[in-house]
């Protein structure tokens, strides 16, 4: 859900280089943990989880302009380490296909892998108390909300999204002359000032943000619902697949 498809050249190098360093460090730590038979057994699992994530992403959701990633489900099924490794593989394949930048693989992996890691631990903590399906839905909602919030913070601070926010000063554009003109026009009365404030609110932009919020909420709702339904299916047909997360 939080896969942002940030293209190359949008995010400042400080952000993507830092994300790459954190991502490679985490991958190296998780990869180092896998040894012997566990390594032989779990590497194909991470591979198929990656393939499944790519397929889930390719499924259209009709009129809603988001796609599933089922990263939380992947985390629940494969565990946090493999979930992160699979997210890295997915983002690299997507970047090679021009779907998201190569420089932003680190950020995208941290966001998507973060969902898998967080989802796994939330599901593990809750499944003993409130049942697998509700736990999966709850874990999904929390993980997706947090990763989406993080994504918005990153994009806002890195890509200058403040420019698109409904209320911002014209000086934000760096148009010193334009700002000066407002001052030179003379004294504003209190009424004129409030009219100006109302004009400053970009209603089109506000509507745009409302639409974005609605789309994000719809995406989180659908992904959580599908995850819950799949977990329900597993708990009936193959409960052993959930064992690693339920029993630890």
């Amino acid at each position: 859900m939080s896969h942002i498809h940030l293209p190359d050249g949008v995010i400042s190098p400080v952000w993507w280089i830092t994300a790459w360093i954190i991502c490679i460090t985490l991958l190296w730590l998780f990869a180092r943990k896998l040894q012997g038979d566990e390594l032989r057994r779990k590497t194909p699992i991470a591979g198929v989880i990656g393939a499944l994530m790519l397929i889930f992403m390719s499924l259209p959701l009709g009129f809603i302009p988001v796609h599933l990633s089922l990263a939380v489900l992947s985390g629940i099924l494969a565990g946090p380490g493999l979930g992160l490794i699979a997210a890295f593989a997915v983002n690299t394949v997507l970047a090679l296909m021009g779907h998201g930048g190569f420089t932003t693989i680190g950020i995208n992996t941290l966001l998507m892998g973060g969902e898998a890691v967080l989802g796994y631990y939330l599901f593990k903590a809750a499944s003993g108390r409130i049942g697998a399906v509700i736990s999966a839905i709850t874990a999904n909602i929390i993980a997706l909300t947090l990763s989406t919030a993080l994504m918005i913070v990153i994009v806002s601070s890195a890509a200058g999204l403040t420019q698109a926010l409904p209320i911002h000063s014209h000086d934000d554009h760096g148009q010193a002359q334009h700002g000066q003109a407002h001052i030179d026009e003379g004294q504003y009365t209190e009424d004129k000032g409030s009219e100006q404030s109302i004009e400053n609110v970009q209603f089109l932009s506000l509507a745009g943000w409302s639409a974005v919020t609605l789309v994000i909420l719809a995406g989180i709702f659908i992904e959580s619902l599908v995850t819950g339904l799949i977990v329900r299916f597993f708990s009936r047909v193959r409960p052993d697949l959930l064992d690693s997360a339920v029993k630890g």
Binding site: T43, G47, G50, I85, A86
Partner: peptide
Amino acid sequence: IVDVFLFT
């Protein structure tokens, strides 16, 4: 990681 790529 390379193996995961190949399996994926």
